[in-house]
Simulated assay, not measured.
Amino acid sequence: MANIPSELLSHQQKVCRLYKRAVRCVEDWFHKTHERRYQIALLRERFDKNKDIKDLKYAKYLLKEGEKEYFSKIHYQPITFAESITGGAYGRECYTPDWALDYWHPLEKAMYPKYFARREQMKDEYLKWYFETYPEEKKKIDNH
């Protein structure tokens, strides 16, 4: 089921996506800015040369040949964006639970006095609400 298309793409969208992939491929091969920009300009010229073709059969043929050429020139170790699925930083952001702030040193808490004063007030309000909503929990704690 991996190859079932979730949407239908127009020919124009396919060409645009091929162009973007080809530009990324050029970026993989050419690391100096002036070389990369020159190669991308040549690539754009090749795409622009065929943009006014009205014969859809020939346009599809050119697209197929372009994809073949792209896959033959694809880099063996493409550059990936750090936050993309294949990137090195994907999924690194971690959730820090609120209780971790309870273990801050008092000198650290003193740097943000308003925040921690409001936080303590909110914790007290939450405990009050919780034990009013669930009085049986208060009894369990008192019995232990």
Rank of each mutant, 00 (worst) to 15 (best):
T96K: 08
R36V: 00
H75E: 03
S84A: 11
K60H: 12
V23R: 02
Y58F: 15
S72I: 10
E125Q: 14
F71K: 14
Y76A: 10
C16F: 13
K57F: 05
P78E: 04
E45W: 12
E7G: 08
Y134P: 02
R44Q: 08
A117K: 03
I53C: 09
Y76N: 09
H31Q: 07
R17S: 14
M1V: 09
K51F: 10
H144W: 10
A59W: 07
E67G: 03
D48L: 13
D48W: 12
M122C: 13
L18M: 05
E27Q: 12
P135L: 02
R119S: 03
E83M: 13
Q77F: 06
F71R: 13
F81Y: 13
F47R: 00
L18A: 01
K51Q: 10
R92F: 07
A59D: 02
L127C: 15
L63D: 01
G66W: 05
V15H: 06
A59M: 06
E65F: 00
I79L: 11
A82I: 11
Y134V: 08
R46G: 10
I53R: 07
A100M: 06
S72G: 06
Y103L: 00
H34L: 12
E27G: 01
R36G: 00
R119G: 04
F81A: 15
V26E: 00
K123A: 07
V15D: 05
F30D: 09
K139T: 04
A41E: 15
K20Y: 14
L56N: 13
D102W: 00
L107M: 11
F131I: 03
A110R: 04
K54N: 14
V26L: 06
K20I: 15
E83Y: 10
Q13F: 01
K138A: 01
K73I: 10
L127G: 00
E7A: 12
T86C: 14
L43K: 03
E93N: 04
N3K: 13
A22D: 00
P135Y: 02
S10Q: 01
Q12C: 03
K54G: 05
Q121H: 07
E108L: 14
K114F: 03
D48N: 11
Q121W: 01
Y126G: 12
K128G: 05
H105R: 05
P135Q: 05
T133P: 09
K49T: 14
L43D: 04
K54H: 09
L18P: 02
H34G: 09
S72W: 09
L127H: 05
L9Q: 00
P106N: 01
E65L: 07
K68F: 08
E125D: 15
D28S: 01
E7I: 14
L62S: 01
K57Y: 06
A110I: 01
K139Q: 04
S84G: 05
L127Q: 08
M111V: 15
L101K: 07
L62A: 06
F131T: 02
H31W: 08
E93S: 09
Y38R: 08
R118D: 15
L43M: 05
K49G: 08
F131W: 07
D52R: 14
E7Q: 08
K109W: 05
A82G: 15
T96L: 02
K68T: 12
C94A: 15
L127F: 04
H105N: 06
P97A: 00
E120W: 04
A22V: 08
A22Y: 00
F71V: 12
E27H: 05
G87S: 06
K139H: 04
E132T: 09
Y70P: 01
H105E: 01
L101D: 04
Y19R: 15
D55P: 03
